[in-house]
Amino acid sequence: MPHAIVVAHGQPSDPDPAEAALAAFAAKVDALAEHVTVSSATLAKPSALEAKLDGLPENSVIYPLFMAKGWFVTSALPKRVGDHTARILDPLGIDPDLPALTANALEAKLREEHWAANATDLVIAAHGSGRSRNPSAVANEFADRLGMQVAFQSIRVGFVEEPPSIAEAARDASNQAICLPFFACTGGHVLEDVPEELERAKFKGIVMPVVGELAPIQRQIAQKVTEAFASA
C-alpha cells in the first residue's frame, strides 16, 4: 500500500510528547485516507524520520505539517530525507484551499454560538519570524483570503516573534470574538505564548483549535496524500 509520512517540527528540548501527539494526529488522517497508510515523524526526534524512511518504498510521500514553505521545508527536511526518493509535498499553510476550509470551520462555530459574523472580531494568532518575512506574509495572505469568505467585523493578525504582537492584535476586541491560532500543531507557542498574550489583552472571546487540527483540514490532508499517488 502507498505510504505517506506527516512531518512536523516537534520539540527539541523534549521530543517524545510531540512525537506521540503527531502520531495521534497521523492516525486520524490515516483513518480518512483511502488506500494510503499514513504515519508520522518529527524533525526534533533524532533519527525518527530516517528510521521511518528506511522501511518505506521509494515512491512514498512526505506531507510537511508546517504553515510556511520556509527553511525547514525547503532546506532542513530535504537534507534529512537524503538519498531517499520520497516526494515532499507542499506544506499545509500554502494550500490554496486552506482559507475556504477554515472558513467552513469558523462558520460552524459562529452557528454554534448564534453569532453573526459581521458582529464578531477574529484574531489570528500566528508565529511570525524575526529573520524572515515569509511566515508573516503567509499569515497575512491567509487572513486576506479568509476575509473574502467570511465577513467578520474585523480580522486582526498578531505574531509571537514579530510585531504586531498577539496582545496588540487582540486588544479592544469585543467579547464576541474568536481567536484562531494559525499553527499546524498544538505546541509550546499555542499552549503558553498565545494564552499569555490573550491574557495581556484581556481577551474575553473563544479560542479555536489550531488550524491543523480542524476537522476539515485533517480531511484535506488525507485527500492531498491520496491525490499525490493518483497523480503519480
Rank of each mutant, 00 (worst) to 15 (best):
V6T: 11
V6W: 08
V6C: 11
V7M: 10
V7C: 07
G10Y: 03
Q11I: 05
Q11T: 14
P12D: 04
S13L: 14
D14R: 12
P15N: 07
P15A: 06
A21P: 00
A21S: 13
A23F: 00
A24V: 12
A24I: 05
A27N: 10
K28N: 07
A33F: 04
V36Y: 00
T37S: 14
S39I: 10
S40W: 03
T42V: 08
A44P: 08
K45F: 08
P46I: 09
L49T: 06
L49C: 05
E50P: 00
A51K: 14
A51D: 14
E58A: 15
N59W: 09
N59A: 14
Y63C: 02
L65T: 05
W71Q: 03
A76M: 11
P78H: 06
P78Q: 09
R80M: 12
H84Y: 03
A86F: 03
A86N: 04
L89E: 04
L89M: 12
D90N: 14
P91W: 06
L92Y: 03
I94G: 10
L98A: 09
N104P: 00
N104I: 11
L106I: 08
E107N: 15
A117C: 08
N118D: 15
A119L: 13
L122P: 02
I124H: 07
A126R: 02
A126C: 02
A126T: 04
H127A: 13
N134F: 03
V138R: 01
F142V: 01
M148G: 15
Q149A: 15
V150G: 10
Q153F: 08
S154K: 01
I155G: 08
R156W: 05
R156S: 13
V157T: 14
V157N: 01
F159Q: 06
P163E: 14
P163D: 14
S165W: 07
S165T: 15
I166Y: 06
E168Y: 02
A170T: 00
A177Q: 05
A177E: 06
I178S: 09
I178V: 11
P181H: 05
P181K: 03
F182N: 01
F182E: 01
F183T: 08
F183W: 07
G187I: 03
H189S: 04
L191E: 14
D193G: 02
D193M: 00
D193T: 11
V194M: 03
E196R: 10
E196C: 02
E196Q: 13
E199P: 00
K204W: 00
K204C: 09
I206L: 12
V207H: 00
M208D: 06
P209K: 06
V210T: 10
V211I: 15
L214K: 04
R219A: 15
A222V: 09
K224C: 04
T226V: 09
A228D: 11
A232S: 15
